[in-house]
Amino acid sequence: MAAELAHPETTSTTAPSPTEELIRFEGVGKRFTVDGKPLQAVEGIDLSVFEGEILTLVGPSGCGKSTLLNMSAGLFAPSDGKVLYRGEQVKPYNPSVGYMTQSDHLLPWRDVVGNISIPLEIKGLSKREIGDRVAELLDMVGLSGFETSFPSQLSGGMRKRCALARLLAYNPETLLMDEPFAALDAMLRMRMQIEIRELCRRLGKTVMFVTHDLDEAIAIGDRCVVFTRRPGTIERIVDIPLAPDRDILRLRHDPAYMEITAQLWEVLAPSVGVED
């Protein structure tokens, strides 16, 4: 006990209290042109993402969740309204965010170390610095021993870890995750959920996490945004009343978890079974 208290930074169980607003959507709408016709993906989005929180986004597919992440990264601008990052309009290729999608986008011609090194090479670090940093990251994501494996030789979970290490390598303040674990089997997904939540809280990352899995949204998130079907608007924003250091493995038996799940299902229910 005393030893634990001696290292509060490693055993701390309280989340940094969400204070500063990091990303802010102000009346954001986005129209695409598909086959010459306008397609309203999202509409009238007012949303704040606070520093250090894990915000999960759920909603029917096609409601514009990925579109919101894309705008936060500055891959394109909103058609209406503003997306602000730390109070300033998001610029193309927002350097403060890291992006992770369902496909890992690893470079097949580089081994694990080579893939994780990319952002460090771009930063212009020396070979030695890169080596030290990569070793640290490998350890952090549990990939030690796979240094010289190519992505084609890794399992799905290992590839995710590699993509995660690459993401953390350049230490972006905010992580945008778009259904990163969708392709994993249930056991592995839960394990990754545990690790990602632990890691993000330890490193103080702000996360926007899109998922189509309500259980995942609750397990990982501090808050959860539920969207309506397209054109996507915010149906509800829900605080998840679970301990910051929750035990994801045993959530299923937690009455608070069962209650919030039931509650969120009610919110989502109208969208179920409606084809677009």
């Binding site: 990264a73 992006y99 990319i118 952002p119 771009i122 972006p172």
Partner: peptide, 19 residues
């Protein structure tokens, strides 16, 4: 997408071309 992900890492045109 891969190019976009690299540019978010701060890659310039030369990085994109060679990496």
């Amino acid at each position: 997408e891969l190019i976009a992900i690299l540019k978010l890492m701060g890659a310039n045109e030369r990085h994109v071309l060679f990496k």
